[in-house]
């Protein structure tokens, strides 16, 4: 449980951080809740770490023109407890609150969570349902992608070497929409065995799923059924169709598929009940 030697730097400007990351050999350190355990097990042995914790301007939650901007270094706890997030995007606060335990939420960051792209991470389900975007920054400049395009596969994202997640943006929740996140948690880690986020309005549905497949995804088939007037159970029933479901010692593929339908129905029903 002792990592290999690594170089460490803690730059105090974004520019310096991006400089140090430019050649792609260093790893970003955010909350360290995923990276440090891997390093201690020597499953990850980066030669150098660039810690973003002292970089100013990466930790914020603000609303501009109906868009909620969340700095990459904003912790799960900060999102969960933000009055602004709760008021303007309750689904995100609900997702943040469901992550791991208090210690993890105090350290882990939204940028780290999406960059790590763990197939069982909680955030992505909600962020996909929210049609979130991520803004990436590198020495060469910035680009913005939809989260859907950003998440490529298991622990694989569109991040290029030298690039960091700078910000996550979501729209302020529509007035007619109710939202909910429902998950079965794995009792050891708290990660989602299956988690489903639902945003439901009149003739409007967005469903994000995590834990079920190699990456979080939007269940467009469920959305279409709901938008076409199907009830929660009928819509939820198709959520795992065509999905090559994950399997591990906590849940077989069949059980996960089943859970996805159960939690989808629960999330949808709750979202509907919360819609005004």
């Amino acid at each position: 449980m002792i990592p290999q030697n690594f170089a460490y730097s803690s730059p105090n400007s974004l520019e310096a951080a991006l400089d140090q990351l430019a050649d792609g050999s260093a790893k970003v350190l955010a909350g360290g809740m995923s990276l440090i355990p891997l390093m201690k097990l020597r499953l990850a042995s980066p030669e150098s770490l660039v810690d973003l914790r002292r970089v100013p301007g990466l930790k914020y939650i603000r609303e501009e023109n109906g868009v909620l901007h969340i700095g990459a270094m904003t912790t799960h706890y900060e999102v969960e407890s933000s009055v602004l997030v709760r008021a303007t995007c309750p689904l995100l606060a609900e997702a943040a609150a469901s992550i791991g335990d208090v210690q993890v939420r105090n350290a882990g960051t939204i940028g780290g969570s999406v960059a790590h792209a763990d197939p069982a991470a909680d955030y992505p389900a909600s962020l996909l349902a929210l049609e979130a975007s991520v803004t990436l920054a590198s020495k060469a400049g910035e680009r913005t992608l939809s989260l859907e395009d950003f998440l490529v596969d298991t622990m694989t994202t569109a991040l290029e070497p030298g690039e960091i997640v700078r910000e996550v943006t979501v729209g302020v929740e529509r007035n007619d929409v109710g939202t909910a996140y429902a998950k079965m948690l794995q009792p050891a880690s708290g990660f989602a065995i299956v988690g489903v986020a639902a945003r439901i309005g009149t003739g409007f549905a967005r469903i994000g799923v995590t834990g079920l497949a190699s990456k979080a995804y939007r269940a467009r088939n469920v959305e279409a059924l709901l938008e076409g007037g199907a009830d929660a159970a009928a819509a939820a029933a198709v959520i795992a169709e065509g999905i090559d479901a994950n399997s591990d010692l906590h849940a077989s593929a069949d059980y996960r598929r089943h859970l996805a339908t159960v939690y989808a129905a629960r999330a949808i029903r709750q979202a509907i009940s919360r819609a005004r």
Binding site: D118, P119, A120, D153, T154, M155, T156, Q186, S189, F191, S214, D244, N246, S247, D248, H250
Partner: peptide, 9 residues
């Protein structure tokens, strides 16, 4: 937890 997804990947 990640063996199966990783193998598939």
């Amino acid at each position: 937890r990640l063996l199966d997804v990783t193998a598939k990947h």
